[in-house]
């Protein structure tokens, strides 16, 4: 973890509610796909945890959805403003155990961390299949970006307005994969757990206090006892999670 002062280089709408935020500035520590950052916003007491989508030597790309007052405030901040950022939070996905044919499944605003993951897996010469699920075509983002990375892509919308009609689980048929990496709303993760036997890693979301493991604000029960989503996660191996909850 490191505390950074980064400047907004871009903050643009990808859909009416989803924004891409590009932050610019120096940092020291290496980052892993599936990690997140915490942004301090003027006048808001708690930081906002946002998953890391992409990065290079001096940029971080975050994609976030406007869900409340804090993210609404963030969406109105213009390039040139600087933000206090805690970066390098959470464990991230383990790419060493994915095998040669990883399957990535993302729903809605759970999709962004899978982009950085996809990029890394492809750089490791793995054949990546991606299923992206949205509610409707107006909410679609980053489909072209995943294709540009060289991933095999399946798209679903709940209302059938684009891609295959249905949920991400309806697009699993015929995919031969060695491993599953998923991120999305809990009902989607549960449905995936029921629909496939693949070994996998699931990224969870929880309301957080600190974001770096100190306050136990985001602890959840698991098969290995209480785990902090912010520090022990947000990515958990499938067999660690208590799916009946």
């Amino acid at each position: 973890m490191e505390q950074l002062r980064l400047v907004i280089a871009e903050n643009s709408a990808l859909t009416p509610w989803v924004y891409r935020l590009v932050l610019e500035g120096e940092r020291k520590e290496t980052l892993r796909p599936g990690q997140f950052v915490e942004l301090a916003l003027p006048g808001r007491f708690l930081r906002r945890p946002i998953s890391l989508c992409d990065w290079d030597a001096n940029h971080l790309t975050l994609i976030y959805k406007v869900v409340g007052q804090g993210t609404d405030q963030l969406s109105r901040m213009r390039p040139g403003h600087s933000l206090d950022v805690l970066a390098g939070l959470g464990n991230g996905y383990d790419t060493a155990c994915t095998g040669a044919h990883p399957l990535l499944v993302g729903g809605g605003v759970g999709i962004p961390p899978l982009y950085g993951l996809c990029k890394q897996l492809i750089s490791e010469n793995k054949e990546v299949t991606v299923i992206l699920g949205f509610n409707t075509k107006d909410e679609i983002f980053y489909v072209n970006e995943f294709e540009a990375l060289g991933a095999r892509l399946r798209l679903t919308t709940a209302d059938g307005s684009a891609g295959q009609k249905g949920f991400v689980t309806d697009a699993l048929a015929g995919i031969e994969a060695s491993h599953l990496c998923a991120c999305g709303p809990m009902p989607m993760l549960r449905a995936l757990n029921r629909a496939t036997d693949l070994p996998g890693q699931f990224s969870l979301e929880e309301r957080m206090g600190c974001g770096f493991g100190a306050c136990m604000g985001c602890s959840i029960p698991t098969r290995e006892g209480q785990k902090r989503v912010c520090k022990d996660g947000p990515v958990f191996r499938r067999e660690v999670l208590l799916w009946e909850n």
Binding site: F45, L46, R207, G209, M216, G217, C218, S219, I220
Partner: peptide, 8 residues
């Protein structure tokens, strides 16, 4: 959880 909420 949720164990955390925010306020002004």
């Amino acid at each position: 959880t949720p164990r955390i909420a925010e306020c002004p």
